[in-house]
Amino acid sequence: MALDQNQIRDIAELSRLQIDDDQITAYQQNLSNILALVDQLAAVDTQGIEPMAHPLDATQRLRADVVTEHNQREHFQAIAPHTEQGHYLVPKVVE
């Protein structure tokens, strides 16, 4: 399935990826080629086949409800782009 340029822009927006205008065509071409590759799947008869999200038929282990992690704010915020008074700062979020 070929994608048009508006679809590329929509997908980029949904993915929060800034794509320069001069690159849209290249992405359009590449992504369309990838979709052509995966379109082979459409022909496969998968009626009644349960989708397989995990390679092993394992089930979730449960963790005891115990506090094991303690304050490491300074350690974690040492690698943050912008913090103040213990908060991560971002451009104003409009509500």
Binding site: L62, V66, N71, R73, G86
Partner: peptide, 30 residues
């Protein structure tokens, strides 16, 4: 395994998993 208590100083109860740092993984609380 971070605490859920209300009213703590900002980000003092946010561990690597809660912060979504690269490489961390969730384990479900029974």
């Amino acid at each position: 395994g971070a605490a859920t208590a209300y009213g703590a100083d900002a980000n003092t109860q946010a561990c690597a998993v809660d912060l979504g740092l690269p490489g961390v993984l969730p384990v479900f609380n029974e």
